[in-house]
Design a protein around this nucleic acid. Structure first.
Lengths: 291, 291
DNA sequence: CGCTCGGTTGAGACGGTTCAAGACGTGTGG
DNA sequence: CCACACGTCTTGAACCGTCTCAACCGAGCG
């Protein structure tokens, strides 16, 4: 469907890809990379739009190039839970199933690399290294999902907020891992709306607001604006999260960075190329394209 | 390590395996099956014992032959969450990682088919059909884990109890899918202790007790004993769970039965061979072997 | 200017936990 | 065989965290 639509045998597009080294493409041999390029196309989607509806046909899969996707599940009476966020470089969609179990929606304006699901599966079938990479990614996602069960099941709302700040901070720290080492401020940045954050942490915007201001009042963080927070007392924040230090390891490798080792090869480029992602929160309401 | 310990090139053991057709072994070609048999051995573990401790070396992987494993994660202050239950025919352990993120413990007396992790990975690397099967299983597990996030994040405690009963009922219904079709009573059986159930649903044994008795009082279920419940009003129970009917589909394919199609080939044998599993709850306190 | 929208703050209500006591069944030892 | 102890489950009452509802605030915008 998408193949015939617009072939796009355009490898230069992949050469310019900001997240190429963090997606499944990173391990693709030359032939596989060409095959993937042939079946993929980029697509911009404004915040709020649905990419795949709950229980709809699993027509496409792909990678997030910029922005954040949310995976949601809704109960018949309207209660909604965000069961996952998908950051740049991460894979989205449901391979090997006719339907998707969850809705995939743009939480911010996003740029996607989209492929027809069956075409993608065909490429994977011909390239074992892709299948292996997909397996590794899925196993990491599974561990991450289970860690989130602990968050939803055991941690109180203050601990959840503290955990979220720690994870957002971790993202930033990794981003500036070698450049300006230890020089910059420790700032946690949230790319999603408060409403989405409430759903993600399974609480309300009011409760989040109260806890954020409580953390500010006791001097653990400084509120820069409603989506950026300077962490003044890291150890205190960690204690308030209720987690063990090593539990953060799980969060570290998941969103925004693919799995560990690959990141090293990226330093330097990551800053300039990441810029649009980091600023996307500011341009969130402006429409950047059409579905 | 395990290989040299006791070679066990014993395919007759696999021929006698009650869950062979529901594990990863089901798709193994002859050569792969022999390789798996060579690196595996069966092991009995009494209820309560730890198979792999949290953050310990991921030394082994395997399949559950009988009984139930629980995966748990514990916060520094002692709060514990059961992030998953592993039923007969299901895979356990953490391939492609040096450590396990969660503890694996015997929730009931269990019988396991155990393999050295690295040996297993080596067999998988030589047999693409195994890797593909592992990927499909992991993707299903991931969808199931996310469905559980909805349960922990959105459903109240009554809805969680109702959902659990529906899932347990679903197990039984599938078990007797063709034999005695529609003849038997609709009975939901819980194999785990109330304490584990409370942790799994992230509530307390008191709350579960209250809800179970409430459901009994309003005539939705009949309490046979503390672990068996006859479902008298299925539609009512479904309504009380807050879920859409199609959400149960996700639970259907997960625990106890592997993925759909394979089950068909099992009918008939499943009853006699499953017996020890179903009665294991009664012999729970008796030790059936040594670690 | 007044609208909407996102966020903040307060007061009250409610669901679920906690604590404590009692009931039940089961295995053990006198 | 009974008495006792123990673990599991049940039931009640008080307590607490979080949600709900509502009012308020400030920024951006037509």
């Amino acid at each position: 469907m998408f193949e015939s639509d617009k072939p796009h045998i355009d490898n230069s597009r992949c050469d310019r890809c900001a997240v190429r080294d963090r997606t499944v493409c990173a391990v693709a041999h030359l032939a596989a990379e060409n095959e993937l390029a042939r079946v993929s196309r980029t697509r911009r989607v404004p915040a709020g739009e649905t990419i795949l509806a709950e229980n709809a046909e699993a027509s496409i899969v792909g990678n997030v190039l910029a922005g954040v996707l949310r995976m949601t599940k809704t109960l018949p009476d309207g209660r909604e839970q965000i069961v996952g966020l998908i950051n740049p470089g991460e894979f989205f969609g449901r391979p090997y199933s006719e339907t998707v179990e969850f809705a995939y929606e743009a939480a911010t304006d996003v740029e996607l690399c989209v492929m027809d699901r069956r075409s993608f599966e065909a490429v994977v079938a011909r390239n074992p290294e892709l299948e292996h990479e997909l397996l590794l990614t899925t196993l990491d996602d599974l561990a991450f999902a289970r860690e989130r069960m602990l968050l939803l099941g055991c941690q109180n709302t203050l601990e959840r907020v503290a955990t979220y700040l720690l994870v957002m901070l971790e993202h930033r720290e990794q981003l500036f891992a070698d450049v300006a080492l230890q020089e910059h401020k420790r700032v946690a940045v949230s790319a999603i709306t408060r409403r989405d954050l409430a759903s993600y942490l399974s609480t309300t915007i009011e409760t989040i607001s109260r806890h954020i201001h409580h953390l500010s009042r006791i001097g653990v963080i400084r509120i820069i604006d409603s989506s950026r927070f300077e962490v003044l007392a890291y150890e205190m924040l960690l204690a308030l999260s209720g987690l063990a230090r090593e539990d953060l390891r799980l969060f570290r490798k998941a969103p925004l960075f693919g799995r560990g080792p690959r990141l090293v090869a990226l330093n330097g480029i990551i800053q300039s190329r990441q810029t649009p992602v980091l600023t996307s929160v500011k341009t969130r309401s402006s429409r950047i394209g059409h579905f």
